[in-house]
C-alpha cells in the first residue's frame, strides 16, 4: 500500500471518529434545547484536538515504519490522484458553503449555521479522502 494511501486512511479514520463523536453529542444536546455557540465550543475543541493528536501520533508511527516511502517525492500518479480528490471536494464544499452562507442565514440560528458549515467541511474532506483511497485501490487513469 502506498504511503500516501495509508496517510489518507489514517486522516479519514481520525476525522470520522472525532466528528462522529462530536455530532452524536450535538444530536443529544439538541434534545435538551438549543445549544449556544459557547456551549458547542468545548466539545468542538475536544473533537478537533482529539483528531489532531490521533493524526499526529499515528502519523508519527506510520512515518517511522515507512521511512523510505515517506521520503519518496509525490510522482505524477500521486499528483493526479490528489487533484482528482481536491476537485471533487471543491464542488461538495461549494454546495455546502452556498447552503450555509446564502440560504441558512435567512432563518436559522447561528449555532446551526456553524455546525452545518462544519458538517460541509467534514463531508467534503471525507469525500476527498475516499476518492484518493479508491483511486489508489481501484486505479485511476487521469
Amino acid at each position: 500500500m502506498a504511503y500516501r494511501e495509508k496517510l489518507a486512511w489514517l486522516t479519514l479514520g481520525a476525522m470520522l471518529i472525532a466528528y462522529a463523536v462530536y455530532f452524536t453529542w450535538l444530536a443529544l444536546a439538541m434534545r435538551q434545547g438549543e445549544p449556544t455557540l459557547l456551549g458547542i465550543l468545548l466539545p468542538f475543541g475536544l473533537a478537533a484536538g482529539g483528531q489532531g493528536i490521533l493524526v499526529a501520533g499515528a502519523g508519527a508511527v506510520l512515518a517511522a515504519s515507512a521511512r523510505r516511502e515517506r521520503q519518496d517525492r509525490a510522482d505524477e500518479r500521486d499528483r493526479a490522484i490528489a487533484r482528482r480528490g481536491a476537485t471533487a471536494a471543491y464542488y461538495v464544499l461549494l454546495a455546502g458553503m452556498i447552503l450555509v452562507g446564502v440560504v441558512m442565514p435567512f432563518g436559522e440560528p447561528a449555532w446551526r449555521i456553524v455546525n452545518a458549515a462544519l458538517l460541509a467541511i467534514v463531508v467534503a474532506e471525507a469525500g476527498r479522502l475516499l476518492l484518493i483511497i479508491s483511486s489508489y485501490r481501484r486505479g485511476w487513469h487521469g
Binding site: D72, D75, E76, G139, H141, G142
Partner: peptide
Amino acid sequence: IGMTRQTVAAIEAGKYSPT
C-alpha cells in the same frame, strides 16, 4: 524514471495510464 515503486506496479497492472 522518477516514480514510486507503487506507481510502476500500478502501470504494470494496467491500473494507471502514465503520461
